[in-house]
Design a protein around this nucleic acid. Structure first.
Lengths: 201, 201
DNA sequence: AATTTAACTTAACACTGTTAATTATACAGA
DNA sequence: TCTGTATAATTAACAGTGTTAAGTTAAATT
């Protein structure tokens, strides 16, 4: 019959329409300055229609962030991982991570700052996209240790430490853009380089 | 006459009352879940009275955060700085910074996460408390380099890199408390230790 | 053509930050 | 002690918020 398929396709389409309107508004005006009515206006539907597709505003945020994480994962996955030089691969990945954050600062904040604020304890459950991002990092660190490029150190701890560093520099650069930072690229490179050197020693 | 002095004293007292009520509510319920009316109820005044003491809700947040920064600066200042071992002093300060953040997680987030969200570009202007916190860190790094414990590296860059690392680990631990972190202390120590080793190399 | 189902909208609730206008209070000088 | 004045605090109101329940329209099925 196919009409049912068409309907579900149309539903999916509207869902995506809502999602992209929400992302655009969240990014440009900030999550808390965006009302359901604003989103509804943008897609030319009544505000309550959104509730047929998303549980509430937080759920909307949640879905937007999930997309961002997939984007990030994809960006990292596109790097040509040189198995023979895992340290260099790690360095490049760290750099790509920060650059992703600075390229889409508001999306990064939505995912790693705003979302935890409105939905405590989540985003990184087992099987989630967030977990996959971290596993990606973990695998690289593991390879560095296996090839004895890094000193014998707990893989998880090292991975989490690296994540801390790149997350930290990304957020500081985004949040305090008026601070008299040294040259941005230099700071990013120093953070990554210093962490990697520290893991070698 | 002295009545004028008493009045200003009373005004100051109410100001502090508002401030401490606001902090308690912000910390326990989250900035955006606290209404001016809630704060007013707590201090048993009408909501609009608050506006005689603070410009708006963001200004209230601002004042709360300024206090937090002073607290942090004081905590760091209380460390006995051993001039003969600046690296150890730096390590202890980093540790104290993270511990401060984890001891008052909500206050930390209000200052370093929520506030930049609601008042873009600030908190670290010249002469501000935030700048003083960073200067404290800068001085320590400078001493490490002067005594040749660290390789010759730009002081500002190194300081900002260190700040990135401790800021990052603090926020990750606060925001993703359900993530399967390795032992918390171990992670914190690794972050700080790795950065310091990286600056020596 | 009638009926069921799905999609969407209208109306409403309790609440938000904030302003303007108003009232109460405490002080000063007579 | 009374009056005028400055200051402090309040009431009422506005335009907007997320969200729910009830109602309406349109499409698909029988």
């Amino acid at each position: 019959m196919g009409t049912k398929e068409r309907r579900t396709r149309e539903k999916e389409q509207l869902r995506r329409q809502i999602l992209s309107a929400a992302r655009e508004l969240f990014v440009n005006e900030g999550y808390e300055n965006v009302s359901m009515r604003k989103i509804a206006n943008k897609i030319e539907y009544s505000p309550t229609t959104i509730y047929l597709y998303f549980r509430d505003k937080a759920d909307l945020l949640d879905s937007v962030c999930k997309e961002t994480l997939l984007d990030l994962l994809n960006t990292l996955g596109l790097l040509n991982r040189d198995k023979s030089d895992p340290v260099e691969t790690l360095r490049k990945s760290g750099k790509a991570y920060v650059e992703f954050g600075l390229k889409y600062p508001q999306d990064y904040k939505l995912t790693f700052v705003v979302r935890p604020q409105f939905q405590q304890g989540l985003g990184l459950e087992e099987g989630s996209v967030g977990e996959r991002v971290f596993n990606y990092l973990r695998a690289m660190v593991s390879e560095c240790i296996r090839q004895k490029a890094f000193r014998r150190v707990d893989v998880d701890t090292a991975g989490q430490a690296l994540w801390s560093a790149v997350h930290g520099v990304t957020l500081l650069l985004i949040d305090f853009s008026d601070f008299p930072w040294t040259e941005k690229e230099k700071l990013i490179d120093t953070v990554i380089h210093t962490m990697i050197e520290g893991l070698k020693a």
